[in-house]
Write a protein that binds this DNA or RNA. Structure first.
Lengths: 166, 166
DNA sequence: TCTTGACCTCAAGTGCGCTTGAACTTACAG
DNA sequence: CTGTAAGTTCAAGCGCACTTGAGGTCAAGA
């Protein structure tokens, strides 16, 4: 009686194709009951769940990560507010990090790259003498380290041009 | 004379494997010169370019989109500050949208989902009587529409429970 | 009752962003 | 000069997130 949405209705309202919904089900992300004729029927709450999955997915989380997060809820029944709060808290640092990363990229576009240094290699964000390699592989500055971090690592590691450290 | 970085050095410094760098080259994202013995040699500027590609990729842009954006630069030589500014401006709305989306998700986690409504269907962010479907398919609220938008669409479209509109 | 559109399963296919392996060559330290 | 780490090409493979197609069943209106 409670579950009354067909897969087609859920597809239309969630924006996820029926095949996608079946796929989510095989991964354990959503659940359904079956009619006598083996057709899926969904509860309304699946809409919110799917919306949540889609958004988290767009954000860059894998379906497995999303599954794990949702699995921390007591799938027995009716998660408490505390359950959801815990889920919320666990995702927050990741979201904050992603937001910070995007803002950094945007700011780089505005300041450094906008000024032409990507080609001319002449501005403040630039990697002076490849110092940043002391921090390990990868594009350090764009991933959150600052030139100050590079200087610090250089001072510790004893790279070229030892900086003064009080 | 100018290009002196081997593919291994670029790999170590950029955090992208040699195979990945060759792949980027086949897509026209980066360029290299060759030694007499057919080995690749890179300019230092490729490091910044690769860092940029990686970050934009992490942000959710496809390599094709990144290629197109980079292709708007005059690959003849030395793009001007105006060229980079144009590139910067074209990406900005996309970045702003992504940032806004993430912030919305974070806020939803804090308020709506944190309060337990995902399962209990009882809070303000909830979709009253499936109103949001008037806005079209997909998870409308999480993608930027507000309950106010839903009410508006409902008033115009003549859905159930016509709201008063001055 | 019949018909039509929506649904079912299962296997295979797709597109993206790389990685791996085979078979071979180059660059450079000793 | 020689050994070896690092480089080369090309084809195939992989993981993710789905989609497509074949072959068949179900549900509901005329």
């Amino acid at each position: 009686m409670e579950p009354h949405l067909t897969i087609g209705e859920v597809a239309r309202r969630s924006g996820v194709a029926p095949s996608g919904l079946r796929y989510y089900e095989t991964l354990g992300l959503i659940a359904s009951e079956r009619t006598g004729g083996n057709q899926r029927r969904y509860r309304r709450s699946v809409l919110r769940r799917v919306a949540f999955i889609r958004t988290a997915s767009r954000v860059g989380l894998t379906l497995e990560q999303i599954r794990e997060a949702l699995a921390t809820l007591p799938d027995g029944r009716t998660p408490t507010a505390q359950d959801w709060s815990r889920l919320s808290r666990s995702w927050r640092p990741l979201l904050d990090a992603r937001i910070a990363e995007l803002q950094r990229l945007r700011d780089d576009l505005d300041s450094c790259i906008g000024c032409g240094c990507l080609s001319l290699e002449r501005c403040g964000l630039q990697n002076p003498g490849d110092r940043a390699s002391a921090l390990g592989p990868g594009p350090r500055y764009l991933e959150g380290d600052t030139p100050a971090d590079a200087a610090l690592a250089e001072a510790r590691g004893g790279g070229p041009g030892a900086a003064a450290r009080p």
